[in-house]
Amino acid sequence: MSSTELFAHENAILCEARAIAAQENQHAEIYRQALAALAEHYARMMRESHRLISRSDRAERELNRLNEQLQDLACALEYKATHDPLTGIYNRSAIIDRVQRALDAGPVALTVIDIDHFKRINDSFGHPTGDAVIRSLIRRVQTILDEGDSIGRIGGEEFTILHPRAGLEGAHATALRIRESLNAEPLAELSEWPVTASFGVSWAARRTPFDELYSRADAALYEAKQQGRNRVVTAD
């Protein structure tokens, strides 16, 4: 839209004023009237500009406020979409995504953890206690993890640790430390029942598909269960 159209009225007044100003021998009253008319329109322009500016300032403020709110909501949504509500660690899709991205960048060690006889805990003490055990165990694991490690809940009582910096031996050592910690000191939530876990550890070179890395760790975990639980098995 051209400004001439939007300011057609103002333009007409401007042309009129210029035409009068170009006349050299007009009566003083003509100049006086033209000046008064111009001043009146000038005042109106000022008033309208002021209103427009203050309205747009208010709208801008409101827009900024809403934008901040949107950012906050987007962050909250992103967090909810990627985290397990019970434990606060990554959820299944988020940890898988992180492992996949780590595999795109380099070799990766992976540990799968499964709480031993978790069904019995649930059946004997109830689901709220089961949930508390999971939360407590995760807090314990988090104090043992190496810097850079990520943990996610794959489902139920099964968790995955991504070790992007450790080799197979480093990941194995971390799993051993977790196992030893659980054996040395029972979880506060269930001190009368020694909660243990079984661990499967695997390693894969860069660009290995996630499923391959994961199923090797899962097979090692199965082996650990078969061998009597409460142990760490490394994939071949």
């Binding site: 839209m1 939007l6 009225h9 109106r44 309208e48 209103r51 427009l52 309205r55 747009s56």
Partner: peptide
Amino acid sequence: NSSSTKMLFGLFD
């Protein structure tokens, strides 16, 4: 919008 506001001012005037 702002250009509508400008035109509305004209109508109200």
